[in-house]
Simulated scan of single mutants.
Amino acid sequence: MAKALIVSDSHGLKEELIMIKKRHEDEIDLMIHCGDSELETNAKELSGYVTVRGNMDFLGKDFPNEAIEMLGNKCLYITHGHLYDVKMSHMSLAYRAEETGAVIACFGHSHIAEAYEREGMIFINPGSIRLPRGTFEKTYAILEINDLNITVVFYSLEGKQIDHLSKEFKGN
């Protein structure tokens, strides 16, 4: 079993990133920030996170636009989403993730917490821990991969599991 902590769109928050990291550090294998941290590239709050550049990351000009990581036996594609116009469609994001060999695409930008599967690709947007849209809850997610399935569990900033957003997918 392998687990990844996924956050996005923290927009300048610092203590919250550290709090979430400490809350889950003993259970996760990978930490991902899908952009718009609005922090500098070397900010201590982002230490340990694989971080990509969002459209509001003016201080973090050295963040890459995308990252590719392995979690267990699954390839993850990580980006913010603004370069793929994810507020309109996830099609361009799906094509790019497929090009990289990923089966899971992690992104942010819309601030809408969601996880779904389309044509064998799993899409995960952890929402925003600062300015959520579509829900009142400030959210992040934990992705869990095991031999049988892939689970995405959403949490509130306070650490409460949000069952109505969480999803389970059959492993492939």
Rank of each mutant, 00 (worst) to 15 (best):
K3C: 13
V7S: 01
S8P: 14
D9L: 11
H11Q: 09
H11T: 13
L13G: 00
E16C: 04
M19A: 09
K22V: 07
K22P: 10
R23H: 15
E25D: 10
E27Y: 13
I28P: 11
D36N: 04
D36G: 02
D36P: 12
S37D: 01
L39C: 02
N42R: 13
K44W: 15
S47Y: 07
S47M: 14
G48L: 15
Y49I: 04
V50H: 05
L59S: 03
G60K: 04
A67V: 08
I68N: 11
M70H: 08
G72C: 13
C75T: 14
H80W: 06
G81Q: 02
H82R: 04
H82Q: 04
D85E: 06
K87C: 06
S89N: 10
M91T: 15
L93P: 03
Y95Q: 04
A102H: 02
A105F: 03
C106V: 10
A113T: 12
A115C: 12
Y116M: 14
E119I: 12
M121D: 03
M121T: 13
I122R: 04
I124M: 01
I124E: 00
N125H: 03
P126Y: 00
L131R: 12
P132W: 00
R133V: 13
K138C: 06
Y140W: 10
I142P: 05
I145M: 03
L148H: 06
N149S: 11
T151R: 08
T151K: 06
V153R: 04
S156A: 10
S156L: 05
L157K: 03
I162E: 00
S166D: 10
K167H: 15
N172Y: 09
